[in-house]
Simulated scan of single mutants.
Amino acid sequence: MDILHDYLVRARASGAVFARSVVRPPWGLTLPGSIQLSLHTVVRGHAWVWLDNPAEAERLLPGDLAVVVGGRDHHLADEPSPDRCVTHEQFWAAGADEDPDAPHAAVFLCGAYRLAGDVGQSLIRALPPMLVIRPSAHDHLHGVVSLISSELTQSAPGQQTVLDRLLDVLLVLVMRASYQDSSDAPSWYRAAQDPRLGRALQAMHEEPARSWTVPELANLSAMSRPSFARNFERALGQTPMQYLTDWRLTLAREYLMAGELTLEQIARRTGYSSPNAFAATFRRHVGIPPGRWRQEVSG
């Protein structure tokens, strides 16, 4: 099992909102920080994107991709000037030039979406506030963006499903680009690249219900028990059993949010001998019983 896949499949985006705009200068819009994750790419022309300081704006050319994490407003315009920007509601309410071949016209895509649950939040926290990726003409990112742009040119049955799945692919490629050689990548991502520690992580993800022991995991990693424990804690900042407990509770919260399993079923799937044992561990780490946590999350 690919560990990144295991995280992403539990954080699948849905209901993605995309907009394709064709505009001529001057133009600009401000998008609110309440959007969990925004994506912007230029199909033709150019655009500038920035957070608080227009002096730090990044220029986007065709094929470039900007990913902005929620929390702060951000801005998109033909020039890095706040004076050009209106609210996103005002921008799209005003309509857009329908002729993409008009002189000086810019064609760009905006996407806004949300990732589900704790896993989605942890993936987003590992991203920088704004990430600009500049793929080559033959890069996979370029191909996916082209497919999204093509899908948005006309309405067709199943369009939302197509956009959601393309967004899944795009997110995987963005995460790869962001995490590759980054000191800010999640510790589990870096550890998963280690050929020895990666085997232990893979085993815990594939069989979270199994009663793993440190000697068993060390054996899978072809290391002595002390060496494995030392290297694991150095790489991930916690012991193997702490990591396993955290992953089990992450899964438990996902199951609780889905509301499809009983506490007994969740306990069994996450490696606990009884609902009481599961509830005790959950309360010790989360602070409240799982039943109450589910009620609070579901509103």
Rank of each mutant, 00 (worst) to 15 (best):
L147M: 14
L123S: 07
L170F: 08
I133W: 04
Q193D: 15
I148D: 13
L173A: 11
Y189D: 07
S155R: 02
P135I: 06
Q160A: 14
V144I: 15
T153W: 01
L171G: 07
V107A: 04
R190H: 12
R114T: 14
S122P: 00
A185N: 02
L127Y: 08
M130D: 04
M130G: 09
L115N: 05
R134D: 09
A106H: 07
S150L: 07
P135W: 09
G143I: 02
D118L: 03
A106Q: 06
S122G: 02
L171C: 12
V107I: 02
D97I: 08
S146F: 07
A112M: 08
T161N: 12
I148H: 10
L123H: 04
R114N: 07
I124Y: 02
R190M: 12
A96H: 15
G117F: 06
S182W: 01
P129K: 02
E98P: 13
R114D: 12
Q154R: 03
L127G: 03
Q154G: 00
L127T: 01
D181V: 00
I148C: 11
Y179N: 02
S149P: 01
P128E: 03
H140D: 13
V132S: 05
A116M: 04
H138V: 08
Q193R: 12
R176F: 13
V172D: 11
S122R: 01
L173W: 06
S187R: 08
L170C: 08
A96M: 14
P100T: 08
Q154C: 01
H104I: 05
A192F: 07
A116D: 15
H138N: 10
E98Q: 12
A185M: 02
S178I: 01
V119S: 05
L163I: 14
S183T: 10
A177C: 00
L109S: 02
R190P: 04
A185W: 08
R165N: 15
V145I: 15
S178G: 05
D97N: 14
S182R: 00
P103Y: 13
V145Q: 13
L123M: 11
A191V: 08
P100R: 02
L167Q: 13
D101F: 02
H138L: 05
R165G: 11
A156S: 08
P103M: 11
I148V: 15
V162L: 12
V119Y: 10
Q193A: 15
V169W: 15
G117T: 06
H138K: 02
G117P: 02
A185P: 00
A137D: 15
S182D: 12
L141E: 11
G111D: 09
A116T: 10
I133K: 01
Q180N: 04
A96P: 06
A106D: 08
P157N: 04
D168S: 15
A192N: 09
A116I: 08
L171I: 13
Q154Y: 04
Q193T: 14
